[in-house]
Design a protein around this nucleic acid. Structure first.
Lengths: 352, 352
DNA sequence: CTGAAAGCGCTAACAT
DNA sequence: ATGTTAGCGCTTTCAG
């Protein structure tokens, strides 16, 4: 196969289409977008010429002239972990159906996250921000420039926010565990590390009273969970139930328990949060959240605010579901069957 | 909180910066990009003015003038499933470090995928396409316009391609299973459905000879695997080892086996592909692939080809690793320890 | 080193 | 209904 396209063909412009169709560029512009008054015959000719030349309008030129990008962005820390990928997917699906392209920005541990966000802001008509990826100051600054929707993050004045119910669900979880008879709890995760963790801890701690203090983990992944749990279990008088801020931590705790020769749930009950696929196979009691809806809602709101920025800031908390599996103890009859069913937009079924 | 920003401030332009700094717009343009000859003093003044006004250049205007987008796109079918999210993440990380923004496009089951791709092509300087999301005709057409890199997909003439080794690894897997003593195999998955599946089946079938025919599943998810496996196990004389095209199918098969009262690996060996987190907890023997590297490589190649399109098309096959766990049978001593270690860019450890 | 001016390709008044 | 023309905000010759 010979090397091809050493120099790529220069893109076709509206002028060439106009010449070929024997009309002015304005007419081409009109004919190609169906919202304007053009003779059927003219439109046909223009369309034909455009097709012949394989013409597609230059996006930058269009954006510059129209003063809009027809694109929005979504900022997140990572895509692995708590099924954030699903949020992005839900977001993309709606955004695409609304005719806007999607730019992504993963902040990970990037030092210049704030700059990157500001830069992104010049390429889009609106921005969705997932979690505590950048400071409130950046959010406020960007929100002064274009519409912003916060996802799974503490609200910022004047900015839309969609979240999942952490506090309330944590309370439900606490109730469930108490009905199991547990009284000594530990919460695995650092409330200061992520807004979600903070909410989950707050709700749980409030529900069980003083009986629970947080055991900060050095991260939110499996290794962190295993390490923190190992430490905890080594100390005297371990808790009866270990409530983890997310499934990865919980799965790590499961491993630590196994390594310590403890039976789950016999010696120790463990719960997670997120309903990862792995949680099902580990029989982990956890909380399922409508991740896809989270993204979809953000995309929809963003679109609305782009076309009309005037309404007051909106806030919504999406419902979550407690999924009771075997890791929290013998399955009591009191569990409402509805609680065991999957969240609205999940294709998963409860396993245990 | 009062409603704010009913009408957002118009963005600052280069003219305002020029006026404030007492120079021409050309000088501002130069001073803001450090690659041009400008007096230190002038540069300082311009920078100051820009900072005062919180000026950031308009992307569309810049793109129009420069004739480039400083952005690339990545097209994929979905983000869930075989950790495609990791590919995207690897891609984004490299692209960002190379100074280009990232646009995403999820084709899912979208009917107008081809149009969407063509549309995306007008917003980027290069495109990465993951899997069989659009037809070869679209790839060829787009590749004539801008650089394209294919990921985990059969090569198209003249287009770069990065893949993971399916055929060779399938052979290794077959060898391992044969050493276990298995002789009757079944392959779960539809080779005609996805390029990866095709390669995996081809390699496996070639290695075990006629002893293996594919059992097409109606999809690649857990439910499809469970259903297909249930059917298979119901028929007389089930296989000794069930090799699944991916982990989700395998996990479904595990459930079907359990439901049928079969012991894994006692009555039936099961293997997967992808090394999902859940595979670890299910003790599933599987194949780990350097997903992140896949994306990273694509981003790097794209960048190179954008700056210099002349080199001949490149093809690379990234190595995979067989992860032997308990689902394939009693752990023989013959397993090379190296085979059990994680792929280069994975943070995961082998569990079993 | 800096300024003036000509585009980049398109949309949107404004004419006709 | 269609053509003319003035921008959109920036980069980049070309002069000076």
């Amino acid at each position: 196969m010979a090397v091809k396209a050493l120099t790529r063909a220069r893109p076709v412009t509206i002028y060439q289409v106009a010449e070929r169709a024997g009309v002015s560029i304005a007419t081409v512009s009109r004919a190609l977008r169906d919202d304007t008054p053009v003779t059927d015959e003219t439109r046909r000719r223009v369309r034909q010429a455009a097709a012949d030349l394989d013409f597609t309008p230059s996006r930058p030129a269009r954006s510059l002239a129209e003063g809009r990008h027809a694109a929005t962005g979504i900022v997140f820390a990572d895509l692995v972990g708590p099924s954030y990928a699903e949020v992005v997917l839900g977001y993309e699906a709606v955004a695409a159906s609304l005719g806007s392209s999607v730019l992504i920005l993963a902040t990970r541990d990037r030092a210049d996250a704030a700059d990157a966000v500001r830069d992104l802001a010049r390429r889009v008509d609106g921005l969705a921000v997932l979690g505590r990826t950048v400071g409130d100051d950046v959010i406020t600054a960007v929100a002064a420039t274009l519409p912003v929707v916060l996802i799974a993050r503490d609200p910022v004045p004047g900015v839309d926010t969609v979240r999942t119910g952490n506090v309330r669900t944590a309370r439900a979880l606490a109730g469930h565990l108490r009905r199991h008879g547990y009284r000594r709890f530990a919460f695995l995760g650092d409330p200061d590390g992520a807004p979600d963790v903070a909410g989950r801890y707050a709700g749980f701690a409030a529900a069980v009273g003083d009986g629970c203090s947080p055991v900060p983990s050095p991260g939110l992944d499996l290794e962190a969970g295993e390490r923190a749990a190992r430490e905890l279990l080594r100390r005297g008088r371990p808790p009866q139930a270990l409530v983890c801020a997310n499934d990865e931590l919980a799965l790590g705790a499961l491993r630590a328990a196994e390594a310590a020769g403890l039976d789950v749930p016999g010696d120790l009950a463990v719960t997670g949060w997120d309903d990862l696929l792995a949680a099902r196979f580990a029989g982990l009691t956890t909380v399922a959240q409508p991740m896809r809806s989270l993204g979809a809602t953000a995309a929809r709101w963003l679109n609305q605010r782009i076309s009309d920025p005037s309404p007051a800031a909106r806030r919504r908390v999406l419902p979550t579901r407690l999924l009771v599996r075997r890791s929290c103890g013998a399955h009591p009859a009191e569990v409402d069957p509805a609680l065991a069913s999957p969240p609205p937009d999940s294709h998963r079924r409860c396993l245990t």
